[in-house]
Design a binder for these strands. Structure first.
Lengths: 192, 192
DNA sequence: GTCTATAATGGGATAGAC
DNA sequence: GTCTATCCCATTATAGAC
């Protein structure tokens, strides 16, 4: 119970992110966020200097948690088991509180590239993640599979996708992601 | 040389799409598009009734080409070779003139879901594509892999990705995509 | 087919009271 | 910490001349 300070700040982050994921960053106005929170626009500006700062704060939170995973990953020897465990830890992040922001990142690439590129703490970290996920850094196919494994995890945690065609539960996404980072032709639990 | 009518219309589509992909749909203004074409905003309104109509026209073009591929696909027996050939034909679309619009779709999901959902001719067609790409419709993992195979193709055709970390050439993307729709544990040309 | 000019709206952001 | 009121600006879109 140490630092339970600004509860409102977190409510803003949560609702804003919800709307950003649903409608996109640019299409979501501060007026709309304020309405959903039943406060005024000016109140938002007390907690965040700009609209961009809201997203920036969310990216920072993710970066922090990602650092923990990366710290673990970099301490491991480079072998299949480590990569698979890394995927599992990333899956935990995606299935936990960071699902929405990761989905936001995946579906708002243009906004990230333009508005947030200069202050996005995730670009270097994602690079590191992909590095750890590939066995042979010289194999471009492996690089692509590493990227796709993360896409798979996010797809598995998108409620909208689950309802639509091709929707899959998180366990299946994890299975597919694990397969993508496993050596070709050598997949442990491949059923059917 | 049959119908070479409005050249300007196509120039608008091309430049607009270029900017939409780079910066996102909402962040790109008609003023900016007009400036790049060295015409005025009003000129754009002669060719397209609204900003949305520009995107809609691009989606229609893709839908048309996709129908040709779907027509072929639906006429095939359902076997591995057909699925792989389907991927190759989709890869041709992505590597050809439809790369940008497919990338736009992948990176602007919120805009598509909100602004264009009611008039998006691609949703039903994508469903059909994924249907054709899975052998066992009851296998959710296969469904996900089918989706990922298209993501792979688009990643392989994103110049920006190619420069960055994890960037891959189209041939590699095709290879990975083919692998994703091939039966597990039975991959023809898996090297290394 | 393209222009100038302008309407109409909504956005992010600030000032200052409470 | 939240409010009211307002500023300033960019945007989409239209009217009407050329």
């Amino acid at each position: 119970m140490a630092g339970r300070r600004s509860d409102t700040r977190e409510r803003i982050q949560q609702i804003a992110l919800e709307l950003f994921v649903e409608q996109g960053y640019e299409k979501t106005s501060l007026r709309e966020i304020a309405e959903r929170l039943d406060v005024t626009k000016a109140a938002l500006y007390y907690h965040f200097r700009t609209k961009e700062d809201i997203v920036a704060s969310l990216l920072d939170d993710l970066a922090e948690s990602l650092d923990e995973v990366l710290e673990w990953g970099k301490a491991q020897e480079d072998h299949v088991g480590a990569r698979r465990e890394l995927i599992r830890r990333l899956a935990e992040l995606v299935e936990g509180k960071f699902g929405p922001i990761m989905r936001f990142m995946q579906e708002n690439q243009p906004a990230l590239k333009t508005t947030f590129h200069e202050r996005n703490p995730l670009v270097s970290r994602m690079k590191d993640v992909f590095q750890l996920l590939v066995a042979d850094e010289q194999d471009p196919a492996a690089q692509l599979r590493a990227r796709l494994s993360l896409v798979a995890l996010v797809f598995g945690n998108s409620p909208q996708f689950r309802d639509e065609n091709g929707g899959v539960p998180p366990e299946v996404a994890l299975e597919v992601a694990l397969d993508l980072v496993s050596p070709r032709g050598h997949r442990p639990g491949a059923a059917t």
